[in-house]
């Protein structure tokens, strides 16, 4: 096998179809880039999901002195008896694992730690914050059911179901991911067709050469390799562009929202994503050129 012969043929082929080559490179780059972004979102969502699902709580807020919640209107603060009964009632539910009581001082501490903003901090005093029961569940999926059964209990002002909040956040991220993947699939389809077309053009342009190659007994590999390589090299260039796109996306987007994430997107994950998209890109180019060749290059 004469490598430089193959490469000079490939180079000539790529240049002769420059516009098609550019089209292939761009579609592959965009397709693989979106695929990569989808994968990156996915890895963030699953690390977030794992982290949060273990911590999902129901916050059962209790009525304070002059609480504005309709459930507490004109009833005054919850009494110690009511508190004990409520705790027992909650603990009695089959899906509940653990109930923690959070008093006003603790609530104030948590509020401070969770980055409540400075202006609010300066006006809010511990007495302004409600007491609550933090209810940990055996199965996070049961959160809504438990919430339903606690609603309307005496002394309960309001229930915050973290699961609902998480679901809407994850739902949004999942939608983003699905969109990226859907467009990626379309792009991959377009890239396949474009590569097929490029290879077909190339086979037509080089029909003299391939005709002579067949006659003098060049092996199929030797005849087909330059075409397949054209597709693969265009795919590789597209893959490199996609990699650049992914690195830029990590720095400009994922690293900026890092503080909201439990595990920031690591360079390792990115390297994995890039490798995967490259492999997918090259394999697609390889298959597309190969299938086209079978049709247009008789042996």
């Amino acid at each position: 096998m004469r490598a430089n012969f193959i490469f000079s043929e490939v180079w000539i082929g790529l240049r002769r179809n420059l516009t098609m080559t550019i089209a292939v490179v761009v579609t592959v780059a965009v397709g693989m880039g979106l695929l990569g972004i989808g994968l990156m979102i996915n890895s963030q969502v699953s690390s977030l999901t794992n982290y949060w699902m273990d911590r999902v709580e129901l916050s059962v807020f209790l009525c304070g002195k002059n609480d504005a919640f309709p459930a507490c209107k004109n009833k005054g603060a919850i009494t110690q008896d009511q508190k004990t009964n409520l705790k027992k009632a909650i603990e009695g539910l089959p899906d509940v694992q653990k109930v923690d009581y959070e008093d006003q001082n603790q609530a104030y501490q948590n509020f401070k730690e969770n980055g409540g903003n400075n202006i609010l901090l300066s006006v809010i005093k511990p007495e302004d914050l409600p007491e609550s029961f933090r209810v940990k569940l055996k199965d996070p999926d049961k959160a809504s059911a438990v919430e339903e059964s606690l609603k309307g209990q005496v002394g309960v002002s309001n229930i915050v179901n973290q699961r609902q909040i998480l679901d809407s956040v994850f739902g949004f991220m999942g939608k983003l991911r699905n969109m990226a993947l859907a467009i990626a699939i379309l792009m991959v389809l377009a890239a396949t067709l474009l590569i097929g077309n490029t290879v077909r053009l190339s086979a037509y342009n080089r029909r003299r050469e391939t005709g002579i190659m067949r006659l003098v007994g060049a092996s199929n590999v030797y005849i087909q390799l330059p075409f397949v390589m054209e597709g693969v090299i265009a795919g590789l260039i597209g893959g490199v562009l996609a990699a650049v796109l992914l690195i830029v996306t990590k720095i400009l987007i994922f690293d900026q929202i890092q503080m909201y994430m439990t595990a920031p997107l690591s360079w390792n994950t990115l390297a994995g994503v890039i490798t995967l998209t490259m492999v997918v890109g090259v394999v697609i180019c390889l298959l597309a050129s190969f299938v086209t060749l079978r049709r247009y290059l008789k042996v």
């Binding site: 096998m1 004469r2 012969f5 050469e209 002579i212 190659m213 003098v216 007994g217 060049a218 092996s219 030797y222 005849i223």
Partner: peptide, 11 residues
Amino acid sequence: AFALEVIGKPR
């Protein structure tokens, strides 16, 4: 030379 190159003969 093309006829020999494409069947992989040495230069």
